[in-house]
Amino acid sequence: MEAKENQGELWEVFLQSKPGQAFKHVGSVHAFDKNLAIENARDVYTRRGEGTALWVVPSKEIVAVTANEAEYFFEAADEKIYRHPTFYSMPEGVKNM
């Protein structure tokens, strides 16, 4: 017998712990619609008052890079050390840079 899929869609949950902070992925929930998804996220992931704002995103809508692509996707940026501030030499004594 094949399992009948009626646990709802999978949604990824992002929580902002304080105003001003970045949203952080905290896990996922099952839900049948948007309202239930955000309420389930609230009921599951803020039981200890962990957050002030929540996002839920359908898991299937997330675009990701696979590991096999990772090399050309990320390692190319390793070469661009000029994007990092420590790349630049500064005269001794310069302030507020």
Binding site: Q7, G8, V29, H30, A31, L36, E39, N40, D43, V44, R47
Partner: peptide
Amino acid sequence: PFLEEDLANTN
């Protein structure tokens, strides 16, 4: 009826 609802009900 499902786990999320169990948690919500308990809240």
